[in-house]
């Protein structure tokens, strides 16, 4: 058992399963509500995490979502072993998307995922290697 003072939980995000995408962010939202945090931060965490989950489903056939809560911040780490992001700066641009036609037909992949994650988090760190995978870290100050 962890000796750390933070609260930890994690989820396996199932790849190619659009129906289950949203489970991790919804559960996280509920737990944050149990802490009595204010609505604004919960909303931001939920939106950013949902976008991250969807990204992992669309681009990386799933991955792992880890949540760590301290008394003063929430850290969300989304790790996948997908194809990676070639040009992060380009990927951050609103509307830029490498999603397939099929996925766009489903209403996803509009190129707003990463921009929304940046907008809603206090800090966004993307660590990616082409062919190896991506690790996205989002920090929210409480």
């Amino acid at each position: 058992m962890s000796q750390s003072n933070s609260i930890l939980w994690s989820f396996d995000v199932d790849g190619k399963n659009f129906d289950s995408a949203g489970f991790a962010s919804q559960s996280t939202k509920f737990k944050l509500r149990q802490l009595g945090l204010n609505g604004d931060i919960i909303k931001r965490v939920a939106i950013a995490m949902y976008e991250g989950e969807i990204n992992m489903v669309i681009h990386a056939e799933g991955g792992v979502a880890n949540v760590e809560v301290d008394e003063d911040k929430i850290i969300i780490t989304l790790t996948d072993t997908g194809k990676g992001i070639a040009d992060i700066e380009q990927a951050m641009r609103e509307g830029f998307s490498t999603a397939t036609e099929e996925i766009r037909d489903l209403g996803f992949g509009a190129g707003m995922g990463l921009p929304n994650m940046k907008k809603n988090s206090d800090e966004l760190i993307i660590d990616s290697a082409v062919g190896k995978g991506t690790k996205v870290t989002m920090i929210f100050a409480i």
């Binding site: 003072n5 933070s6 609260i7 930890l8 939980w9 509920f30 737990k31 509500r33 149990q34 802490l35 009595g36 945090l37 809560v69 008394e71």
Partner: peptide, 18 residues
């Protein structure tokens, strides 16, 4: 659904639950 009205107490409780 809040575990405790006091954030610090709620924090400890959620950690225990997890």
């Amino acid at each position: 659904f809040v575990l405790d009205k006091d954030f610090k107490k709620a924090f400890v409780k959620l950690r225990q639950v997890e």
